[in-house]
Simulated assay, not measured.
Amino acid sequence: MYVARDKDGTLCVFFNKPVKSDIWEIWQSRIDYPRDYFKLDSSLFPEVKWEDEEPTEVELVKKEKV
């Protein structure tokens, strides 16, 4: 999975590696599936910036109940 921030500050997580569109000022999926991404709270991942050349790869981990 990948996290990327659009120029307007919108933060999204993508299931597949997105590409940066300087024309539209967004990161977009290369996959034609309608929901290859979900918006996240924009306060998360403050280190992820629009200026980044590549999306940030992340791993979703399920915690076991203790």
Rank of each mutant, 00 (worst) to 15 (best):
D8C: 02
D8P: 14
D8G: 06
G9T: 00
G9H: 01
G9C: 04
G9D: 01
G9P: 09
T10L: 11
L11C: 10
V13I: 14
V13E: 06
F15I: 06
F15G: 03
N16F: 06
N16L: 13
K17P: 14
K17E: 04
P18K: 04
P18A: 09
P18I: 04
K20S: 15
K20H: 08
K20F: 12
S21Y: 03
I23M: 05
W24N: 09
E25K: 04
I26W: 07
Q28L: 13
R30Q: 05
R30E: 15
I31G: 07
D32I: 06
D32W: 15
Y33G: 09
Y33S: 05
Y33A: 05
R35G: 12
D36N: 03
D36L: 08
D36Q: 15
D36R: 09
Y37H: 15
Y37E: 04
F38P: 15
K39V: 11
K39P: 07
L40N: 00
S43P: 01
L44Q: 14
L44E: 05
L44G: 01
F45Y: 02
F45N: 08
P46D: 00
E47I: 08
E47H: 02
E47D: 14
E47Q: 05
V48H: 10
K49Q: 06
K49L: 03
E51H: 14
E51T: 10
D52Y: 10
D52Q: 11
E53N: 07
E54F: 07
P55R: 08
T56A: 01
E57Y: 04
V58P: 11
V58H: 02
V58K: 05
E59D: 06
E59R: 03
E59C: 05
L60K: 14
L60I: 13
V61Q: 06
V61E: 15
K62H: 12
K62T: 05
K62M: 13
K63S: 12
E64M: 09
